[in-house]
Design a protein around this nucleic acid. Structure first.
Lengths: 123, 123
DNA sequence: TTTATTAGTCTATAATGTAGACCACTTAAA
DNA sequence: TTTAAGTGGTCTACATTATAGACTAATAAA
């Protein structure tokens, strides 16, 4: 008997029981936040994002952008010119998200030292 | 020529160039936040955390607790009694962290619907 | 003609997360 | 006395995810 295997992420794609888990499973990864912060003050193209972030792989940049777009955090605009010009920009949801996120970033800035000290203390 | 391979996480263990990345690389994983929220109102033992969170593996619970302790978010107290009693509780840093985090959680609650709608819209 | 740009995709490999068996110990019930 | 269940974990085999870097096709500048 063959089973149409359902992965956890498929299972929870819609109507995740816990909002914050749903949000953080997406946004709390390695790269999403960095991308959103890069777009905070101006729209950007694929390759300039790649250069700005530096250590992200093209594949992960591509994937993460798609997810952010799908969830409504960013928009993707293709300009019909040659060579193609694709611009990524914050959508309403992304702008709104960065407000609470920025308070968290501020906390991180203020407490980074304390965390580093804690780490060193314990070897 | 053998190379003493250095992983990225080793490289950035101390003095990570970007505070928020450093913080989110640790806290933004699958489980850390869930654990911190479980400890928000009272200390807990290993197995009750395991039961409360439900779908975390023992290994990940163990690993994540160690990291949270090392970074100073939580404390681990062993009571010299039989059978052993090990309690995990929020440390100062953990309590302080949950303040900005809770505003983000509130945002997630308020915008979860919008995100789900965005996802459905795009297939 | 070589090089660089555009926005990505593809593949092989490395790193990470998972379930679930297992450990030594204690306690309580059958 | 055996059995089961609880304590706080570790270990192993496997599944999932991320990585680097080659590759695409088109265009433009040197």
């Amino acid at each position: 008997m063959t089973m149409a295997k359902t992965t956890k992420s498929e299972l929870f794609e819609f109507d995740h029981p816990c909002p914050i888990r749903d949000v953080l499973d997406r946004i709390g990864d390695q790269w999403s936040l960095l991308i959103l912060k890069s777009l905070e003050h101006n729209a950007m193209r694929f390759n300039s994002l790649h250069r700005e972030i530096g250590d992200i792989s093209r594949q992960m940049l591509s994937r993460t952008l798609k997810r952010l777009e799908k969830d409504g955090y960013i928009t993707r605009t293709v300009y019909a010119q040659v060579p193609a010009r694709v611009e990524y920009a914050l959508a309403e949801l992304g702008i709104s998200f960065l407000k609470p996120m920025n308070t968290l970033i501020q906390w991180a800035d203020e407490n980074h030292q304390a965390i580093c000290r804690a780490r060193k203390r314990q070897n």
